[in-house]
């Protein structure tokens, strides 16, 4: 059930990108001024503050996709980019937007390792040209029981995996995110094991819905949303969708995944959205729709986040209560 009326404004026009950019430049500028005033040069090198400007998002040319979810209205650009989890930039959901300007997204490469015909490194700009970028509007469900609708831009991860030429011994795919104390000093404050690691079974990774994502709302990803490249798995809880990926490994055994390592009883390897599997803190039966007024923010959570028709077959015969 949607709260706001569907609008026929193209998603690229909904947000005022300039407002957002100005805010971020202001934040960077203010932080730089404040830090130098305090003599905290360690935190903001001139190089990094320059980066805040050069990492400005660029417009993407996208094509429509039949895999985009129809009939749902995207959450505002502002909410998508100011309310999210990205522990490398702080544990509060408003932290990533404040702190991720430190992230340096160029140059950027993704290393391909493990059971592949040939280990190699892809440059981000080449990666973005590998296949036409599609707009995919997906539901996004966080394990913390809130949800959004996000117009992502990317192409199916399967296109990239084919280019990686994995061997038949590759049963799982592991995603490793950037771990950089300089750009992400917050990782020191967290008890999680770094770098952030996520993983998928090969058939999940090859599923056409699994998106290798470079942008949202028709422009390159804002840093806080996992720039310059991330994955998006609309039928799984948000934390499965690894951000700012620097390495993809094709492996034989189920790889370690960060939240599962941290609390195995709470976060399983699969982490499919499932209203019938409870979490000790959050009821997974309902979700709060971000951006909705508080008295009608609650809506029922759908099995596989509403993507059951496409993905349920992946888990045929599996007990999803034990394989949560």
């Amino acid at each position: 059930m949607l709260i706001r009326k569907p609008s026929d404004i193209p998603s690229s026009e909904i947000t005022s990108k300039s407002d957002y950019m100005n805010r971020r430049q202001f934040m960077a500028g203010a932080a730089a001024v404040g830090a130098s005033a305090l003599g905290a040069a360690r935190l903001v090198s001139p190089h990094q503050s320059v980066n805040a400007d050069t990492s400005a998002s660029a417009k993407l040319t996208t094509v429509p996709s039949p895999l985009s979810t129809a009939g749902i209205t995207p959450t505002s650009f502002k909410d998508i980019t100011t309310y999210n989890n990205f522990y490398e930039f702080g544990t509060d959901k408003s932290d990533p937007a404040k702190n991720a300007w430190r992230l340096k997204t160029r140059p950027w490469t993704i290393a391909i390792e493990g059971n592949v015909k040939e280990e190699k490194t892809f440059d981000i700009d080449a990666l973005m040209k590998l296949h036409p970028i599609e707009e995919r509007i997906y539901r996004h469900r966080c394990v913390e029981a809130w949800s959004m609708v996000i117009p992502w831009d990317g192409y199916s991860l399967s296109e990239f995996i084919k280019a990686c030429k994995p061997l038949s011994t590759a049963k799982y795919v592991q995603f490793l995110s950037l771990e950089d104390i300089g750009e992400e000093p917050w990782i020191r404050e967290s008890s999680l094991h770094w770098p952030y690691s996520e993983g998928l079974r090969m058939d999940e990774a090859m599923h056409p819905l699994t998106l290798l994502t470079f942008g949202l709302y028709g422009q390159t990803l804002p840093n806080q949303d996992g720039a310059p490249v991330r994955v998006v798995l609309p039928w799984k809880y948000g934390f499965k969708s690894a951000k700012s990926i620097v390495k993809i490994r094709f492996v034989e055994n189920q790889p370690r995944t960060t939240w599962n390592e941290s609390a195995p009883k709470e976060y399983g390897f699969y982490s499919n959205v499932n209203p019938n599997v409870d979490h000790p803190r959050w009821s997974q039966k309902t979700e709060r729709v971000i951006g909705a007024p508080f008295w009608k923010a609650s809506q029922p959570t759908l099995m596989f986040n509403g993507y059951g028709d496409q993905v349920a077959s992946l888990y045929k015969g599996m007990d999803l209560r034990t394989n949560f």
Binding site: K78, D79, T82, Y83, K93, S94, W146, R288, I290, G291, P293, F294, A297, S298
Partner: peptide
């Protein structure tokens, strides 16, 4: 904050 629509993206959590 409720009347000025400034309870943030997740008003239920804020309250």
């Amino acid at each position: 904050q409720g009347f000025t629509d400034s309870l943030g993206p997740d008003p239920v959590a804020t309250i």
